[in-house]
Amino acid sequence: MTYLRPHNYARTKRNRLIATVAIGVVVIIGLTQFFAPYFFPTFFTALARPFWREEFALEIGAFRPTSNIIAENESLKMEIADLRMNYSSSSVAILESRYNDLLSMFGRASTSPTQYKLGSVLARPGALPYDELIIDIGQVDGIASTSKVYAAEKVLIGHVKELLAHSAKVILYSSPRETYDVLIGAKQIPARSIGRGGGGYTAEVPHGSLVQVGDIVTDGTLYGRAFGVVVSVLTDPSNPFDTVLFAVPVNIYQIRFVLVDLPKSNIRR
């Protein structure tokens, strides 16, 4: 005789209960994670934190030993000291001195203290239209209508436009439509800078000239004075030229003093 195995209703009911509870727990956890995502991390981290000891982590090797970090720090300090020795200001000063000696040998000595006249800026861009300055030195001080004007650290910024007896108007090379021939970057790529206003310049260089942001733009003279710093390079594959945007490295809206070139006949020796 065949007996049918009786159905275990209690077991089925228990399994259903377990499944319901499991699904309920998952739903509750999901909703908690959705509405309060940091509840569980905060709770369990607070429970586990008393067990997280730095000494224990060190013993099991979870962190690098302090001695290794100290040794690495000393090694980095030595490397910094070596770099400072190799590229110290004294090294730069030595190179600069040798460069000036070389120029002197060929009668092209660098600046002398009496080659420039210091002028105070009476009005600057913002108070004047375009990129112009009014300075407090003029014809009586020995400057000429062709004199070049420099900002701090001998940055060429413009030239005298109008000359009066005791004052002068200076137009900056960053003024719109003002042009100046410059050299860009370490490869000294020749270009013509065109003023954009607000202390900015633009120039075109052949495509692939490898001009980079941060390259120094110089004035093209023997002394290679700073003229600007490249801030952007615009490349268009369909254009054989790249557009280089660079800016004067000083804030023209805050210039207080300028140096004005004196004509050679006016230089006192």
Partner: peptide, 11 residues
């Protein structure tokens, strides 16, 4: 597994 994720994974 959930506690491990809460401590080291989630968030």
């Amino acid at each position: 597994g959930f506690i491990y994720d809460v401590l080291f994974g989630i968030g």
